[in-house]
Computed example of a mutant assay.
Amino acid sequence: MLAHYQPTVLEDWVEAKYQSVGILTPADLTIDNIANAFHIKVILLPGAKEEALWDDSLAAIFLNADKPVLETREIFFHELCHPLLHHGDQLGMSSHQRLHQEEQAGHFQLYAALPFFMIRSLTLPQLEQDIIHLLATEFAVTHELARKRWEQIHRRNYSGEAHYQLVAEMRSRYKKSLPQDWSDETKALYERAIQRQQKHYRGMVIR
């Protein structure tokens, strides 16, 4: 079902980071387990401002104890991005830099809360609503976040499939001769056609 899905560089990084500390299944994705694995102190307080504080030697994530458990988990995965991936104090950054980090943390949240390498190991049902319910249950996230992640995966898989079909079609047009035997003009034409079609699908792929 997901044979043509293409992970991003950030997604591959998250997967490698998890695997390096033995986080391999949805059951491993608890706040305590992840915090211990990456030496991050989690502070759960009523009314706390939700944020991550970190430097080269210490990292802490503050969570609001008044919020529902699933929402708290999702905020944790968002804040987790900062001590693992970012350097420097956000207070000293420009608004553009802070916006970039927060946007990156939004993508990181999806990858960290619902890792594709774990999703790939599941037996997914046929109906989209059943898939979303399964993801929400398996990964202990809200249906809203599960839907967002599944829609992202579905779009990227569709884009990958479209690209695969495009390459197969273009190759079939030149199947009378091997690529190494093509003239420079034919090779250039082939490359331009591929690039032109890739631009059409590029808008469907997000980070």
Score class of each variant (00 low, 15 high):
residue 8 T to L: 10
residue 9 V to F: 08
residue 11 E to C: 06
residue 13 W to H: 03
residue 20 S to N: 09
residue 21 V to A: 10
residue 23 I to H: 14
residue 28 D to I: 09
residue 30 T to R: 12
residue 33 N to K: 14
residue 34 I to T: 08
residue 34 I to M: 05
residue 35 A to I: 03
residue 35 A to N: 10
residue 46 P to W: 05
residue 53 L to M: 09
residue 54 W to M: 11
residue 56 D to V: 14
residue 61 I to Y: 08
residue 62 F to A: 09
residue 62 F to N: 06
residue 64 N to F: 03
residue 68 P to Q: 04
residue 68 P to K: 04
residue 70 L to N: 08
residue 74 E to W: 02
residue 78 H to W: 06
residue 79 E to H: 05
residue 84 L to P: 05
residue 85 L to D: 07
residue 88 G to Y: 02
residue 95 S to V: 12
residue 95 S to A: 12
residue 104 Q to E: 11
residue 105 A to Q: 04
residue 106 G to P: 02
residue 106 G to V: 11
residue 108 F to C: 02
residue 108 F to E: 02
residue 110 L to I: 04
residue 110 L to C: 04
residue 111 Y to Q: 13
residue 112 A to E: 08
residue 112 A to R: 05
residue 112 A to F: 00
residue 113 A to S: 15
residue 114 L to H: 06
residue 115 P to N: 10
residue 116 F to P: 04
residue 116 F to G: 02
residue 120 R to D: 12
residue 123 T to R: 06
residue 123 T to G: 02
residue 124 L to I: 04
residue 124 L to Q: 06
residue 125 P to E: 01
residue 130 D to N: 12
residue 130 D to M: 12
residue 131 I to K: 13
residue 131 I to R: 11
residue 135 L to P: 03
residue 144 E to V: 05
residue 145 L to T: 00
residue 147 R to V: 06
residue 150 W to E: 07
residue 154 H to V: 05
residue 155 R to A: 14
residue 156 R to N: 15
residue 156 R to E: 12
residue 158 Y to L: 15
residue 161 E to S: 13
residue 162 A to S: 12
residue 170 M to G: 03
residue 172 S to H: 09
residue 180 Q to S: 12
residue 183 S to N: 01
residue 185 E to H: 10
residue 186 T to C: 00
residue 191 E to C: 08
residue 192 R to W: 08
residue 195 Q to K: 15
residue 200 H to E: 14
residue 201 Y to C: 09
residue 203 G to E: 07
residue 204 M to C: 13
residue 206 I to H: 13
